[in-house]
Amino acid sequence: MATIHLAVNGRPYTVDADPQTSLLTVLREHLDLTGSKYGCGEGQCGACTVLIDGRAQRSCITKVGAVAQRPITTIEGLGSGDQLHPVQEAFLEEGAMQCAYCTSGMIMSAVALLNRNHQPKESEIVEFMDGNICRCGTYPRIVSAIQRAARAMAKAGAATGAGR
């Protein structure tokens, strides 16, 4: 056991845990942030995806000891207040979910993609998202949702740019 300081969704947390424990377990069991899901435990499905330093990481194979003090964002920390993140909005508008168990991981991966590539081509979306499984098969809608979010973010960016 060790005392570990975490920075999740802009808030500091202190947990007592074995540093070898997965970040996913700590998020779900210790912090009750259950939006990140378990799907495979071996980095194959992406249901547990969170952002660490803004990059998409599989929290099931990330040891909590390795991410102390680094900024972690989970699905619960996206958007601000009542305002959804454009990617969340786009998933709703496209109806890009059935059981939605994959959805938080999909959204986190999509946010990471759009952070580094504002206008991804369809083939780039497919390549980047290929590590995320949707067993219900909603892939085409997820692609559309990411494209929609990219357009919305570009528009919002242009609007704030023009205002300056």
């Binding site: 939006g35 979910m97 959805t103």
Partner: peptide
């Protein structure tokens, strides 16, 4: 008609509790 999922917001925000999330 095509109406959006009634509780869709709970799913895109991670708020919905699936059986494995219950405590």
């Amino acid at each position: 008609q095509s109406v959006p999922k009634v509780d869709g917001r709970d799913f895109v925000t991670g708020k919905h509790r699936y059986p494995s999330d219950h405590k």
